[in-house]
Every structure is written in structure tokens, then in C-alpha cells.
Amino acid sequence: MSGLKLDRRRFLGLTGAGASSLALAGCDVFDPLLRPGAEVRSVLEKANDLTYRVQRALIGDETLAREFSESEIRQGQRPNGSTDPTSMEYMFLSRSDFVLYKLRVTGLVEQPLELSLEELRNMPARTQITRHDCVEGWSCIAKWTGVPLAFLLDQARVRPEARYAVFRCYDEMPGGLAGPQPYYGSIDLIDARHPQTILAYGLNDQTLPIANGAPLRLRVERQLGYKMNKYVHTIELVESFADIGRGKGGYWEDHGYDWYAGI
């Protein structure tokens, strides 16, 4: 068998066969196994639970994301996703500079809150220069100013059974036959109470622009951009998000993306 000698023609023939089988293999044979709801996909999705557990065990709850210096802000924050919500309520509020805007904190809290932008701006503020990582692969450094979410949660006195903070937003996303779906998302209370988790109303020393989520957007600095909901109007504390939307914890999660986006 070791005596199997290859002349040039045979060698080229074998190489060609190898290359074309590789080309075929990449085709659509795996597509049906990976569609939402497919059994194989649901097994593979468990890797995200593992990543979540390992990162939670490995990374301290209070460990900060890297903060950058002023000189490292070299461009404006690139807007992504919704950049101009068109619901009547949002357009009405934005036309009047959000003076009528109220952030509501509801759900499993002892003291539900309703806060105007003015009240939010008068609360303790945090400013941080951080890197925004989009799930697509790009990064952008910008300066964010806002009120720490932990401060709002303390004011509202979160009840012990609460496990997640759900953010409801003004922007609507395509939802197929079901019509436009309001954008929403969720994070666990470790990220919700993280010192760098803020509800930002300022970007690069200016008022947060509409394209970046005015009047208020979430920053969760140890996760990817799709977890940092823009145009937030309500924060709801819940024990489970199983009966919200399609039950996966967010608009993008309902459309196949992992719930934990720390990677």
C-alpha cells in the first residue's frame, strides 16, 4: 500500500476531486438542520448557555470594560439598526424635544417610577469612553453620559424574585406577517447593576441624537451592540421573559441571535 505511486496525471485528478468535493460540501446541505426550531440547531444553541455560565464564573460581576482616553475618539458614533423611529408617539415626542417624555420603571418593583428627561439628568451621572462592538464585527469608540441603571433600580426597590430587566423601545422592527414588532431586549440583573450600565442621554458631550437612540438608550459595556437598546421608554423587572414576544428575551433573540452577547 505504501507502494502506491502517483504519477502527475493521477495526482492532479485526485487533487481536483478533493477540491470539488470541498466545494460541494459548503453548499446548502446544512441549511435545513440549522433553521430556527430544527433539533440540531437547538443542540448547538446550548453552547451560548455554556459561554454565559463560564463568562459569569470567570468575569467578576463588577469588573469594568476598558475605558479609553479622549484622544481615542476619532470619529462620530456610527448609528446602526433603527435610526429614525416613525411611530406617531415617538415622532410627537421628538418634535417637542422630548419634554413630554417619561421613562417608566415597572414590574417587580416596590416603587414604580415615572421620570422625565429633566429628572433623569438631575440624577447622579456617569461618563465613560468605551468601545461599541457591533455583532457584525466592527467597533467604534465614543463617550457616553447617563444615569447608572443600578441607581434607578435602587430607587424603584427591585423585588427579590426579579431576575431580568426588560427594555421596551419606541422603534418598530419588521415582524413579517405579524406586522411591525416593537423592539425590546433584556439583560440579567448582574449586567443591570454593573457600574458601567447606564441609560445614556449624552453622546460625545452632546445631547444623544435620534440616530443613536434619543432620548435615552442603554449601554451594557460587556456585551455586543444589539443588547444596548435605543429609544427606551419602559424598564420592566421580570422573573422570566418566556411570555414576552416570542419568549427569547429580545427582538434579535426572537430572530435567532443568542441571548447572551458577551462574545
Binding site: A23, L24, G26, C27, D28, F30, D31, L34, R35, R41, L44, E45, A47, N48, T51, V135, E136, W252, H255, G256, Y257, D258, I263
Partner: peptide, 18 residues
């Protein structure tokens, strides 16, 4: 022919990759 899934689907690509 070089991607899984064959169509553009970042979410599924990430799930399989991780």
C-alpha cells in the same frame, strides 16, 4: 458555497461557530 448557512444569516453562523 463557502458559507454555512449558504444564505446570509449571521445569527446562525455565530451559533454554529461558537
Amino acid at each position: 458555497w463557502m458559507t454555512i448557512p449558504s444564505y446570509q444569516d449571521l445569527a446562525t453562523g455565530r451559533i454554529v461557530h461558537f
